[in-house]
Every structure is written in C-alpha cells, then in structure tokens.
Simulated assay, not measured.
Amino acid sequence: MKRIVIINGPNLDRLGQREPGIYGDQTLTDLENLLVEEADKLDVEVQFYQSNHEGFIIDEINNEYADGEVFGLIINPGALTHTSLALRDALAGCDLPVIEVHISNIYKREEIRQHSMTAEVCLGVISGLGFDGYVAALRHLAKLD
C-alpha cells in the first residue's frame, strides 16, 4: 500500500484560530480526518507531520523519507515557502514526488507571498482551494505509478 506523507509547516497547527477570514474555521485535526477518509477510498496510507521549526521539517524529510517506504509527499510549507532555500534543497534531494499545497491563493496575497522558493522542485502546486487542494494532491499522488 502506498504511504503518502502530509507535512504542514509553521502556524498550520493554529488552523481554525489563526486568520479564519483567510484560512477558514476548520482545524488541522479536521483536515487530517478528511484526508484519512479520502485515503481509505483511494486505498493509500497517510501519515501526518507538522512543525513550526524549519530544521525539524528538513530533518523529517531527510531522515524519515529517504528509506524508500514513503511513496510521495504533500507539503504546505507555510511561510517557509517564500523564504527557505534549505527546505527547497531538502525537497529537491528527497527523490520523491512532492506536491505543494496552500489553503489560500498565495498569488492574491502580499507581494512577498507570491513567490515560492519550493515550487520549482515540486511536481505541482495547488493554491487557493482550501482543504480541497490537499484532497486533489492526494488523489493525484495515489494514481501515480
């Protein structure tokens, strides 16, 4: 069974509380429950990781997913999207299909949020579809060989 890891970066543990006008009122637990339900339908396994610390996320990618047991990654790097060359390098070196997801449409936000340092090393980017973006990413990875 394919195992797909969903990584959420800084401040995504505060979904439902932080800027609900931008990110909605659902929580990270709500997102994870939605993705578990979808994974069951797709016959894939999902694993979740969230950290507010750049180095922990990089360590997780470099150490945990290099073992060949993970099929692909879905990542919402949060603000690290726009600032982290180190995260970009970790994603480039992990040799897995990666889809970058953003709940809000980063291209309708502040200018600094309109550039992704990580996008060029990802299979694709989904932005602005809320939790549906994660579902679309999961469906896409599930059908890859």
Rank of each mutant, 00 (worst) to 15 (best):
E111D: 15
V121S: 10
S51H: 08
I75H: 01
I106F: 12
L73M: 14
H82N: 14
H53M: 01
F48S: 10
E60G: 00
V70P: 06
C94S: 08
V121H: 11
N52C: 01
E60D: 04
I112L: 15
E120P: 07
Y65F: 15
L96H: 14
N76P: 00
A79S: 14
M117G: 08
E111F: 12
L96E: 13
I74T: 05
E38N: 09
T83I: 11
N105V: 13
T81P: 02
Q50Y: 01
H102E: 02
A39C: 09
G55F: 00
I58D: 00
P77K: 10
T118P: 09
E38L: 09
I74D: 10
A92D: 12
G55E: 06
I61R: 03
L42M: 03
A39H: 05
Y107D: 13
V44M: 04
G124F: 09
C122N: 11
D43N: 11
D95P: 07
D95N: 15
N62V: 02
C122G: 10
V98P: 08
Q50V: 01
G68T: 01
H53N: 07
K108A: 15
D95K: 15
Q114L: 10
R113H: 13
P97I: 14
I58V: 11
F71N: 04
L91D: 01
Y65D: 05
V44E: 06
L96Q: 13
D40P: 00
I74H: 01
D40H: 04
V121R: 10
M117A: 05
G93H: 08
E45I: 07
E64V: 03
L80C: 07
C94T: 05
V125L: 12
D40T: 01
Y49M: 07
Q114Y: 12
V121D: 10
P77E: 10
S51L: 07
T81K: 04
D95V: 10
E100P: 04
L87M: 15
F71M: 03
D95H: 15
G68W: 01
G68P: 00
H115K: 14
A119T: 11
E110W: 07
Q50A: 01
Q50H: 11
E45F: 06
R113A: 12
S84Y: 02
I106T: 12
G78S: 12
F56P: 00
V121A: 09
H82V: 02
E120H: 12
I106K: 12
I99G: 14
G93C: 11
L73C: 14
D67T: 03
L123R: 15
L85R: 08
H53L: 03
